[in-house]
Write a protein that binds this DNA or RNA. Structure first.
Lengths: 343, 343
DNA sequence: ATTTTCTACGAAAACGTTTCAGTAAATAAA
DNA sequence: TTTATTTACTGAAACGTTTTCGTAGAAAAT
């Protein structure tokens, strides 16, 4: 009934009201040249008046651009990712892009599904921090094939795969943390790692081993754990570590959640930190600063990472470089050791 | 050059390959009845084979449905919101909806802008947790006018405004927290509130006053603060509270961040918690559980809130009820006092 | 046998933009 | 003056779906 009454939006309605063709209106809106100044102002006035907003579906269908970026991330609640996402979102917004944020929940299956959905939405690009267990990357092929650029960050493909790669210097972070412990006189250092499928944990483990080797300290296999880094698993590992003496002198956790749980466990069984046990975490989660003793950790400067992601993304979108890698060599972001009371 | 070579996706291509009309393919994909079983399987096979994915822009243009929901939230890094968002996202995903998450950063200006962008994207609905300072809601009118339903949650309009409203029982939460402190024998209770423009802080303040009045304890104006609830402001408030005696016996913070900062301050100046000062926070932020002493707080059950939001949203989307409120009376979610070491 | 209902499909219009090709008028160059 | 160029615009096709309407044949009802 009121279909025609209040449907006074749309380029055609503006055209009609102004006795112009839709084409002209479109040109004004898209800032094309070759449109008379008087016409431009007239159109803009009308646009303002009826509160016109471009229908992105129609224009997207025509131009094959959605001005929307997809993002797949394991969990938005992880501190580093939350920071990065916020930076990306603000950065993209100021350039007229929307962001569809999806959580894979560390499920490869979900990651696949989300990739398909994002493709169906015809996003202009996809930003991905992979699952803990993503070792096969073929589900991203559909994006590449359709010239949708992909930027991997943080947890990135371990085998060569087209797409831009931006990652923290995980090797160096772990190296710094371990060296720090060694310099404090620790020899029996336990290492709690994430699954060694995931790029960041591979690199961190390598960094740990490098530091140990450099000081000629053997790595005790019984003091190294590979597991999903949550509080429960951390407690289990601690249980094993403190089942019999000699106890470890230090714990390097590849994750602040794990470090926090380790600290909690130590407190419970009456081990003094840092006197009897030193703890180093990873990521500079805000929680690591407020517990007592506060936990030494590695800062990844997530805001910086976010900025670089936006920068690279805009570059790619501008150049129209499709899925094919522009620069195959990954961008590696610096990290820093944050010394606190736990060491 | 290869435009026609690899562009073998699309309903028309399937139709061509199978000697059918696009209409039939569409019917198969949309599970319309009146399509022969043999045809259906043939089509589905081809869909599978070429990896067809519906172009949501084309279908959206036609049907005026995007299967995308917009979400505006102050900050995704806030614990309660992160939880709620995750629940919403998972819930919607299993029903075939995408979620565009936007952060207003507690800026009204940004909230306006994001609303416009979401309208331009023609999302099927919008979920909003308002800014701290949103007192005028007219920027949401454009959604209502265009029959895009809006669900407000947590921070909701304080004046009557169309749209579904889902909120925590902030009055009760504050009442519980305050009563708890009073029962522990506290009389000089400081209250650190957020700005009284925002629905949740109005309700919490009312709850606080109610509990105080019920026990005939006067509210000392010098011990009540209205401010943006971040760590810096919390420390300033603490500074004033402990500038001269008599010191407060308890602090009720309308926020766990504030409670955490208050605890930190107390520790620094050597005030013993809970012996000399009791602290209650709000939201059950994970951080409140890991500090020592752990902080008593109010749990809002964010997962439950998320579930209800999804439930209501799906109801609205199914019924096709536009922007006009279906049920003008807000849904109020229960809260619970979590007793910890700080009281 | 005739009429009615149902099934399975096709033709074509529509959704709101963008853009190509075209044109008439105005200006510049010859 | 004629011809070429530029400017300011229009008409119409296109993007990939969905959906209405129509139709031919099959099945059911009369």
């Amino acid at each position: 009934m009121k279909k025609k009454l209040d449907k006074k939006n749309g380029i055609q309605d503006i055209a009609e009201a102004l006795q112009l063709s839709p084409a002209t209106i479109s040109r004004v809106l898209n800032k094309h040249p070759h449109v008379h100044e008087a016409t431009r102002t007239k159109v803009m006035a009308m646009v303002e008046q009826i509160g016109y907003r471009r229908n992105v579906m129609a224009s997207g269908l025509r131009t094959n651009k959605t001005h929307t970026i997809g993002l797949i991330v394991p969990r938005i609640s992880m501190f580093v990712h939350a920071e990065i996402i916020t930076t990306i979102q603000n950065g993209l917004h100021s350039h007229g892009y929307n962001l569809i944020i999806c959580q894979s929940n560390d499920s490869v299956e979900m990651e696949k599904e989300l990739t398909e959905t994002l493709y169906a939405s015809r996003v202009d690009a996809v930003i991905v921090a992979c699952t803990l267990y993503t070792s096969d990357f073929s589900h991203f092929d559909i994006l590449m094939k359709n010239d949708i650029p992909v930027i991997f960050y943080d947890r990135v493909p371990v085998k060569p795969y087209p797409g831009c790669i931006i990652k923290g210097d995980d090797f160096r972070g772990a190296y710094l943390g371990t060296s720090h412990l060694i310099e404090l006189g620790c020899k029996r250092i336990a290492y709690i790692s994430g699954p060694l499928v995931c790029s960041i944990y591979i690199d961190r483990y390598t960094g740990f081993k490098k530091a140990m080797a450099q000081h000629e300290i053997p790595v005790d296999k019984d003091m190294v754990f590979y597991q999903e880094l949550n509080a429960d698993n951390a407690r289990k590992a601690m249980h094993m570590l403190f089942a019999k003496k000699p106890y470890p002198e230090a714990i390097f956790a590849a994750n602040d959640v794990t470090a926090l749980a380790a600290l909690g466990f130590a407190k419970e069984i009456g081990i003094q930190v840092p006197k009897e046990l030193k703890i180093v975490g990873y990521s500079n989660d805000p929680r690591s600063a407020i517990v007592s003793p506060s936990i030494t950790t590695i800062d990844q400067f997530p805001t910086q990472i976010g900025k670089i992601i936006v920068q690279e993304l805009l570059k790619i979108l501008k150049n129209g470089t499709g899925g094919i890698a522009i620069d195959p060599s990954p961008i590696i972001m610096p990290v820093e050791l944050i010394r606190r009371m736990s060491t």
